[in-house]
Amino acid sequence: MKTVILRSQALQGATASDLSAAVQYLIGVDGGGTGTRVRLSDRDGVLLGQGESGPSALGQGAEQAWRHIQQAVQAAAAQAGLGELDLSRCAIGLGLSGTGVEAQVEAFSALQPGYALVALDNDGFTTLLGAHGGEPGAVVAAGTGTIGEGLRRNGERAYISGWGWVCGDEGSGAWLGLKAMRHAQQALDGRAEAGALARAVWAVAGQDRATILAWCAAAGQHGYASLAPLVFDHAPNDPVAAGFVADAVSELERLAHALDPQAELPLALCGSIALRLSSEFSGTIRARCVSPRGDSAEGALHLVRSALQR
Results as ranks from 00 to 15, higher is better:
G164C: 10
Q70N: 15
D247W: 12
I27N: 00
L40V: 07
L128F: 09
N154F: 13
G33Y: 01
L259F: 10
A300E: 00
C289F: 13
V23E: 05
H68Y: 11
A210Q: 12
G33C: 07
F281H: 02
L308P: 02
D30F: 12
Q24I: 03
H257K: 12
A218C: 05
L252H: 04
V73D: 00
A210R: 10
E193D: 14
T34D: 06
N154P: 15
Q112C: 04
G83D: 08
P55H: 03
A219Y: 11
A21E: 07
R310S: 09
A158F: 05
Q71M: 11
T34L: 12
L129K: 07
I92C: 00
L269T: 05
A80W: 09
L19C: 08
D44I: 06
D189Y: 12
G137A: 14
A116D: 01
A62T: 06
T34R: 04
E193T: 15
A194P: 14
W165A: 07
P55R: 02
L252K: 04
E102Y: 08
V304R: 05
D123C: 06
G164I: 03
V139R: 03
A263I: 03
A75D: 09
C289M: 14
D121T: 13
G190D: 13
Q71Y: 07
I147M: 09
E52K: 14
P229A: 04
G173T: 13
Q50T: 13
A242N: 08
S172H: 05
E135P: 00
D86R: 14
L178D: 01
W215I: 09
A217S: 11
G28W: 08
L96Y: 03
L82P: 07
G137M: 13
A142I: 03
I147H: 03
A219V: 06
L265N: 00
A65P: 02
I147A: 06
G61Y: 01
L82N: 09
Q185I: 15
G100L: 05
G45K: 06
A210L: 14
I212Y: 02
V105I: 11
L308C: 02
E102D: 08
A297D: 08
A203F: 12
V105S: 08
I212E: 03
A138F: 01
Q9T: 08
D169R: 00
N154W: 11
G148R: 03
P55K: 04
A256C: 08
W163Q: 11
G145L: 05
L58F: 06
G195M: 14
I27G: 02
V204R: 10
T284Q: 13
G195V: 12
P292D: 02
A192V: 11
R89Y: 07
Q186F: 05
G61L: 03
R276D: 06
L151A: 03
W215A: 05
L277P: 02
G83S: 07
A75R: 12
A14I: 14
G223T: 06
C216L: 15
L120M: 11
R288Q: 13
I5E: 10
A258L: 10
G271Y: 01
T211A: 15
G164E: 05
G49N: 13
R305S: 05
L26W: 01
G81C: 09
T126Q: 04
G83A: 05
A62I: 06
T15N: 11
Q70R: 11
R37G: 05
E280C: 09
S296H: 02
Q309R: 09
L6M: 13
A228F: 01
Q79I: 06
G54I: 04
D169K: 01
D169E: 06
